[in-house]
Amino acid sequence: MNIKLKIWRQPNAKSKGRFETYSLTDVSSDMSFLEMLDYLNNNLIREGKEPVAFEHDCREGICGSCGIYINGRAHGPQHRTTTCELRMREFKDGNTITVEPWRAAAFPVIKDLIVDRSPLDKIMQSGGFVTINAGAAQDANSILVNKKNADEAFDSASCIGCGACVAACKNSSAMLFIASKITHLAQFPQGQVETHQRVKAMVAKMDELGFGGCTNTRACEAECPKGISISNIAKLNREFFVAKLKE
């Protein structure tokens, strides 16, 4: 198939960006979206032009590196799919595809489609952990966890930290990201111990780093490649209120 690409090009954080248009022929429908970009870059390099910079690594939907806004949607049109898992069979011959980086004040563009998502790491640092040193744990089966809680913890913990929720949200809120971590750890007895400090610290850090608040548009849930439910945010709010009440 033949396609047209409108891609955001921006040499670095300081310079202004703009869209460039490229035509690509003989695109195979089996290609992944990133393989299509590889193909474009291969052509560009041979023509002596600068290839499009984009972030990627595992290419199997788990590392969370890739994150591209495709035709106005985080990770493109396919539900519960990361950019690297997206196949060109989702597009039609003759399509024009618009390709942009994540757009969020907290995620400045580094180059072309690559943004700085380090604020997510900073939020994690503020409290997204259980305080225990190596060697201090008791036998794993001495902590019993109801299967339902364990399964819910798993679902929440399947967040890959790609930032699609932030990019999709009109407020650029990181609520779903934080909520998945809070909910994950709150399901376990060992995570309960410091749950109040955790929720307060992580929410405060999110505000400090320039992410917006949640206005329940549910865009995050719709675009999350791992299908993390907005019910996590309800649980976060509950944890947060309880924590505040206990102050």
């Binding site: 952990f129 259980v130 225990i132 190596a134 060697g135 201090a136 744990a137 008791q138 036998d139 794993a140 089966n141 902590i143 019993l144 966890v145 109801n146 299967k147 364990a150 913890a153 798993f154 913990a157 994950h184 750890l185 399901q187 376990f188 060992q190 995570g191």
Partner: peptide
């Protein structure tokens, strides 16, 4: 065995049985 204990303590959601054990 120490590794499993530590990951469990860190909150790694290993699959569990109905009685709550791993």
């Amino acid at each position: 065995n120490l590794v499993i204990d530590h990951y469990t303590a860190l909150g790694v959601p290993f699959a569990r049985d109905y009685g709550g054990t791993i």
